[in-house]
C-alpha cells in the first residue's frame, strides 16, 4: 500500500488562521483543499511538507454568490461537482461548468475543488512517478535532479499545465483573490500562471487562493474541449477554452485559451485578432484555427505523441468555435458529424 509521509495537520476554521499557520511555518507548510492532487504527489514523495493546512473547515470558501448580470464569485473550496452543476454557472458560464465536469472522474469531482484545480501541479510523465522510479531515472529538474529529461539541453522544466478549468477562467477574464499575511490582492487569472514547469503560479508560498471572481457574462458564450485518451480519469493533454460574443454576423469579442500543452495556459492572441470584428465564415474559422498551431508547444512527456497534440489544437479550436456558432461540429462530404470531446 502506498502511504503518505508523516506530517502535522491543521484544520483552521478561518482564513486568517490558515494564513497565520502558513506564515509561521514558511516553506515547510502546504495547503490542501480536496487533496486529490496533493496527496498522490505526497505518496509519490514529490512533496514532503511537514505541515498540512486543510482548508475544508473554512465555511466562506464553500460559497457561490452572484449572477450572470453582476458576476459570480466562487469560493476556492467549492467542489468541481458543485461548479459543474450549479444553475447559474450552467446557465451562463457553461464552458466552466463543462470544464469542471470533465475533470478526472465523478469521485474526484466530489472531492476536488475549483481552487485546487486552478492550482493543480504541472504534470510530466518523468515527474509524476514514485520515488523508486525517479531514482531509477536519475531524477529531473522539477524534483531532486539537475536536468530536464524531456529536453536535456534546455535550462528549464517542461512540465505541462494540466488544469481543465484555468483556460476557461482566463477566457472569462476572471479575477482571483489571494490572501496572505500582507493582506489580500486581486490578480487577473491570465497573470496567475507562469511559463515554467516548476514555478508555474504567480503565487507566493504563504498566499492562499480564496475566491474566483467571474465578471458579468456580457453576451459571451463559452465552451471547453478536452483531448485525452479516455472519457474519464485522464488529465487534459490538450484543452481549448473559447469565449465568443457575436454582434449579428460579426465577432464582437473572442478569447481562445489552450491548456494541456505548454507549461501554462496560453491565450491565442494572434488567432483572436484574426476573428475580432470580422464577419464569421467557415473559411475565417479555418484561418483562426490554423493560427493556433505555431504557439502550441507539445513535448514528449504526456500521453499521445507530441506532434499529434499540436495538430489537434487547430482542430479543437475550430470545433469549439463551430459549436458556439451552432454549426455542425465537423464538415465532411457526407455531412457526418461527431460529438463534442
Amino acid at each position: 500500500m502506498l502511504r503518505l509521509p508523516p506530517f502535522t495537520y491543521y484544520a483552521p476554521a478561518r482564513i486568517e488562521d490558515a494564513v497565520k499557520i502558513l506564515a509561521d511555518y514558511g516553506p515547510d507548510a502546504m495547503v490542501v483543499a480536496g487533496g486529490t492532487d496533493l496527496y498522490p504527489n505526497m505518496k509519490r514523495r514529490q512533496f514532503e511538507p511537514k505541515i498540512i493546512v486543510g482548508l475544508r473547515q473554512i465555511r466562506e470558501l464553500h460559497r457561490i454568490n452572484g449572477d450572470a448580470k453582476t458576476g459570480v464569485t466562487i469560493g476556492a473550496c467549492v467542489t468541481l461537482a458543485e461548479v459543474s452543476q450549479h444553475p447559474a454557472i450552467l446557465a451562463s458560464y457553461r464552458g466552466l461548468a463543462r470544464a469542471a465536469g470533465l475533470v478526472a472522474n465523478p469521485q474526484i469531482r466530489h472531492m476536488g475543488t475549483l481552487g485546487g484545480n486552478l492550482c493543480v501541479d504541472t504534470r510530466c510523465n518523468y515527474y509524476d512517478q514514485t520515488l523508486f522510479w525517479r531514482q531509477a531515472l536519475g531524477y529531473c529538474l522539477k524534483k531532486d535532479g539537475a536536468i530536464c529529461p524531456v529536453a536535456p539541453g534546455s535550462q528549464r522544466c517542461w512540465a505541462v499545465t494540466s488544469t481543465d478549468t484555468a483556460p476557461v477562467i482566463i477566457a472569462l477574464r476572471a479575477t482571483l483573490r489571494l490572501v496572505s499575511p500582507r493582506g489580500e490582492r486581486l490578480v487577473a487569472a491570465s497573470d496567475f500562471y507562469r511559463d515554467d514547469g516548476i514555478h508555474y503560479l504567480n503565487k507566493e508560498a504563504d498566499e492562499i487562493l480564496t475566491e474566483i471572481l467571474l465578471p458579468p457574462i456580457d453576451g459571451l458564450k463559452t465552451t471547453y474541449w478536452k483531448l485525452r485518451r479516455r472519457g474519464s480519469f485522464d488529465f487534459p493533454v490538450l484543452g481549448v477554452a473559447v469565449a465568443l460574443a457575436q454582434e449579428g454576423e460579426r465577432c464582437r469579442d473572442v478569447r481562445i485559451v489552450t491548456g494541456g500543452v505548454n507549461s501554462r495556459p496560453m491565450e491565442m492572441t494572434e488567432a483572436e485578432r484574426i476573428l475580432i470584428g470580422e464577419r464569421i465564415t467557415p473559411d475565417l474559422i479555418e484561418r483562426v484555427a490554423q493560427a493556433v498551431y505555431r504557439p502550441v508547444k507539445a513535448l514528449d512527456n504526456t500521453d499521445f505523441v507530441p506532434l499529434y497534440r499540436k495538430k489537434m489544437a487547430p482542430v479543437f479550436v475550430k470545433r469549439a468555435l463551430r459549436e458556439l456558432l451552432g454549426w455542425p461540429i465537423q464538415e465532411t462530404p457526407d455531412g457526418h458529424t461527431s460529438a463534442a470531446g
Binding site: N105, W133, R230, S232, D234, F235, D303
Partner: peptide, 16 residues
Amino acid sequence: LHKIPSMLEYKSPTTL
C-alpha cells in the same frame, strides 16, 4: 524504464 507504471497512464478502458 517502464514509461507509465500506473493505473492513470496505463489506459484501461472505462465504462465510457
